Simulated assay, not measured.
Amino acid sequence: MPRFATVALVAGAALLVRRAVRSRMTSAPLWPMPSLETPVSGYGRGATVPRRVLVTGRSVPAEGVVELRLEGERLPSWEPGAHIDVVLPSGQVRQYSLCGDPGQPDVYRIAARLVEEERGGRGGSREVHEQLHEGIEIEIRGPRNRFPLLAAPAYVFVAGGIGITPVLPMVRAAEAAGADWRLVLCGRSRATIPYLADLVRLGGDRVTVVAEDESGYPDLSFLAQTPAETLVYCCGPDGLMDAVSAALPEGRTPRLERFSALAPAGGTPFEVELRRSGRTVAVAAGQSVLEAVRPEVPGLMYSCTQGFCGTCRQTVLAGEVDHRDELLTDAERAGSMLICVSRCAGGKLVLDL
């Protein structure tokens, strides 16, 4: 995928094209971007290599949210929508969207909301909040982008809470390029919405703020009247993404970024042959491949168990996979799977284990 021009260069050009763009709807890209037919990108240049970065800044963009500034040498370039894998002090791996400036070399910014265990948290966000302070060095992998900003004359962005993190650089890029855009920004309260003041200052009345404690849930009925060439992006809780999908005209789908993968268990039982081990194990309907295989393969690597980090990725030698991860590209899925969430679409899989 071609790389974005830096915001500084685009902003200058935007002054010349803004009126033309808004007076005539055109499908021509306003900056180097993939066409709508371009496959989603996988890892960028050198992104599979673990890198050490230093936490050089820490701020609080909203109640319960911490932003970290990460600096390192020769960090790979990235595009709006990209995320990185962060190896936490405990060894857990978590994914965080890059929410800074793609044109700022060797600096990444991520933000994490504290999620308590009783609300579905698994301890990763607490590590970020309590252990990652200025001067701490951590390991990262990536960036990776399964949520790229595609070329369009107009956009509607819908973000819920911490879901603004991948959308924030998209909004800035659309504004710098002179594209028409609108943002619906949702949260439990105004105090819990990250970057609220910055976005309102940037977009003015193009930003609709919907705080549940003030006005309930967002009215998305306007999506039914959006032109076909307007791309709709949404990141947030499943309920919000379902509402966006339902509000669009039949045949149109939004581009979504989920907080969690599809359920790892559920479906029919099947078998997994471990080719190198010479054993075959049964996977129950309520069991993941990882759970079934671990007793047979001591030392099998895994981390997130949510289909995000890629630690449990295995080569598939035969069989049809029901992919449920949020990580692998279509090309990568052709010969591998994440065994923590994905299942078999038939009766048997053969893994290179």
Rank of each mutant, 00 (worst) to 15 (best):
M1W: 00
P2M: 14
L9G: 03
L9W: 00
A13L: 12
A14G: 15
A14W: 04
V21F: 09
R22M: 05
R24Q: 12
A28V: 07
P29M: 05
P29Y: 07
L30G: 00
W31Y: 11
P32N: 04
L36W: 00
P39H: 04
P39T: 06
S41T: 07
G44R: 11
R45D: 11
R45K: 11
T48R: 15
P50R: 12
R52C: 12
V55W: 12
G57F: 13
P61Y: 05
A62M: 12
A62W: 05
E63Q: 13
V65W: 09
V65M: 13
V65H: 09
E67A: 15
L75R: 02
S77F: 08
S77Y: 07
E79W: 03
P80F: 04
P80M: 03
A82L: 05
S90N: 04
Q92K: 13
Y96P: 09
L98P: 04
G100R: 05
G103W: 06
V107I: 14
V107G: 11
A112D: 05
E116Q: 11
E117F: 02
G123H: 02
S125K: 09
V128S: 09
H129V: 05
Q131F: 09
Q131W: 12
L132A: 05
I138V: 14
G142M: 13
P148T: 01
L149A: 01
A151W: 03
V158H: 01
A159W: 04
I162C: 09
I164E: 10
T165A: 13
V167G: 08
L168R: 15
P169Q: 11
V171C: 13
V171L: 08
A174G: 03
W181V: 01
V184N: 01
R190N: 08
L196M: 06
A197N: 07
A197L: 07
A197D: 15
A197V: 10
D198Q: 15
L199C: 06
V200Y: 00
V200W: 00
G203F: 02
D205K: 12
R206F: 02
V207Y: 14
V207C: 10
T208S: 15
V209S: 11
V209C: 10
E212Y: 11
D219A: 14
L220V: 13
A224C: 08
A224V: 11
P227D: 05
A228H: 14
T230F: 07
V232N: 02
Y233Q: 03
D238Q: 14
D238S: 14
G239N: 07
V244G: 01
G251Y: 10
A263T: 07
A265C: 04
P269F: 10
F270L: 10
E271S: 13
V272Q: 02
L274E: 01
R275M: 09
R275Q: 13
R276A: 15
R279L: 13
G286K: 01
Q287T: 09
Q287K: 03
S288H: 06
V289W: 00
V293S: 08
V297A: 04
V297F: 05
Y302H: 14
T305F: 00
T305Q: 14
T315M: 06
T315R: 14
A318Y: 06
G319R: 07
G319A: 10
H323R: 04
R324C: 08
D325L: 04
E326N: 10
L327A: 01
L328R: 01
D330K: 02
M337V: 08
I339S: 02
V341I: 06
S342K: 04
S342P: 03
S342L: 09
C344V: 10
G347M: 03
L349Y: 02
L349M: 08
V350T: 15
V350W: 02
V350Y: 01
D352I: 07
